[in-house]
Design a protein around this nucleic acid. Structure first.
Lengths: 201, 201, 201, 201
DNA sequence: TATGAATGAGACTTCATTCAT
DNA sequence: GATGAATGAAGTCTCATTCAT
């Protein structure tokens, strides 16, 4: 069964390359990042990268997909536990805040892909955006079923929550606020959202 | 006084170049945009650009500054009229929605600068972000003075409103929603915000 | 005696590789042909080729030698039967025409080696050229002994016949003439040559 | 009128590059020839070549076209004077012999293009082939009009003469014969051809 | 013996910037 | 001041060859 070992090795190398690439792409962006440098940092030959990825663009996309997987997994984990809607919204916010701080590279890459000009990158990043929305929409539906909230357009509301959460955190980071300060807003945000979603009666 | 005329000419040419550059930068991003193409589209010689801007980077920054001026002016105009806080929040949302749709190029450039990886571009885009926050904070303070709302941390709340507004619109656009649909959310958003900010009684 | 079997196997594999290589070299030329593709088409590993040939160049030369052997054998076979000089010249022309059409790949390879710029390839192709000339010279000497023709410089005349035959066919092919049309010139050509070589009386 | 001077300069540089390129292409072939080296030998910057030619392939084709022009001009000049058909055939042979020796580079390049595998190069080289055939066909028609020769298929005969001439010379060169020796065959060749074309009566 | 993953030299081409006109 | 021809650094990608398994 050397096949399996080889497959594992191959996958490991693939991930290793993606990891190093992510660091470079996050630091310099797609165009400024240098395949040579990525190879060096990955401790492999220049040509080796092309055994794993068709070209620079595909490497970037593969990295984007990996980031998306990891982020969506982190968010799902944060929402896995049961709890009141308020708690869960706070967890969501906290999960995003942690991702944005601890995985700043991935976050930068993801955001620049989402709001950058390269359409194929944007398309890939958009998929993650959709996954986020779906995950949050599920959360809202569960809460609605329990009568905790009242929500006419679940999709739109989910998007609103995501936008608020994600963008708030990013803006705060860009404006130089500390993780401490950002996390302390979790309660404020979730309260704000809830007030807007509470059964009006 | 040919000096002044010359100065005016020079400024006019400068703006003309920036304008053409904006179109290219928005379409292709900083790295992919081509100085030669920009010069052609501006109807001037390639070398002439270097009489007005030190290099490509400075041209980009100048463009970023111009965009920022235009956007902040649009927002201020939208909030210039008096009105209830609910109305003014709707206007704010509408102004952003219109900018994002009608000035999509500038918006793309601004967003990719803000969330991109080039620090000096980010710094410039951040200034616009600060201006936005300040403008909204002013709005909140006025409303608070009138007793319309109650708000403990004006800065944070302003950031929250900006984030919610801007990010909601961008996400919606990226997800392919029509301008119609987006504008129809204006009321929902402003209500949501207000509920969260209303005196708790 | 596994040694002999192994030797036979080795030789068989060698020929197999050369055969596949010929197809690629004919299609793409020496530089554009790809060792990897050749290996794939031969159904062996890339490294295996280097167990049979020192490098790409040697593989090409080996192929050139094989082509030369096959071609010269075809020509000799065509001239093996006895006949009048006119008949034999027609057979010669026919043999070349058939080679050029049916073994177009080898012909291309041979011609590009002969008239190409790589000196070592040219040297190898030249050997085939010499063999051709020698074979035709032999034919002429036999005819001269029989008094069919009169020929002062056998070598030069042989070269002339070869040139006329080979080049006429190639030019005709390049100009898009059908095999039919080309073969129909066999009689014309041999008559032309004969008139030039006939005893002047 | 700097336009005309510039046009002339541009054309001069263009020819200069083509000239240097021809030397490299003749020495190494299309694939092995190096744009860097060509630029160096032309005494210009690497990028400058791309101001005159779209890419390596186009440079090669431009060179091929220039060679074709020069060669066909040389042949036409050789046939410009009036004379008997025998004389003119000898001049033709001589012109080819001189071209093949003195412009050996161009001849190599042209032949490798004609018999190489790159179809677009072949197409270009074929055009020269056709021009040759046309020129020779004209010669034959003139002679036929004068009753010097009798020729049923002028095109085919022209091709035959060209093939014989060109290929004989090239083979002779490849086989290492001196220019002296080759030129001394002119009479033999033209006699051979004429015998074949003389009115049979 | 056979393999094919890894390598890295090397090639083409682009494009921001300069500078002579 | 305006120009655009010239430059050459730099970057992506290919592919012949090696070598550990």
């Amino acid at each position: 069964m050397p096949k399996i070992v080889d497959e594992q090795m191959r996958e490991a190398t693939r991930r290793h390359i993606i990891h190093q690439a992510a660091s470079e792409f996050a630091r310099l962006g797609f165009d400024q990042a240098n395949i040579n440098t990525i190879a060096e940092q990955a401790g492999i030959g220049k040509g080796t990268i092309y055994l794993y990825f068709e070209n620079k663009r595909e490497l970037f996309l593969a990295m984007l997909r990996l980031i998306a997987q990891e982020h969506i997994a982190a968010i799902r984990t944060a929402l896995a536990q049961d709890g009141t809607i308020e708690q869960r919204l706070e967890w969501l916010f906290g999960a995003f805040a942690r991702l944005a701080q601890q995985e700043r590279d991935s976050f930068n890459v993801y955001m620049s892909a989402l709001y950058g000009v390269n359409r194929s990158f944007q398309a890939e990043a958009t998929r993650l955006l959709r996954d986020y929305v779906t995950t949050i929409a599920l959360l809202l539906e569960q809460s609605q079923a329990r009568g905790e909230i009242e929500c006419s357009d679940v999709e739109a509301t989910a998007l609103m929550i995501l936008s608020l959460t994600e963008s708030y955190i990013l803006s705060a980071i860009v404006l130089g606020q500390s993780e401490q300060k950002i996390l302390s807003q979790a309660n404020l945000i979730s309260k704000l959202v809830l007030k807007g979603l509470l059964p009006s009666s």
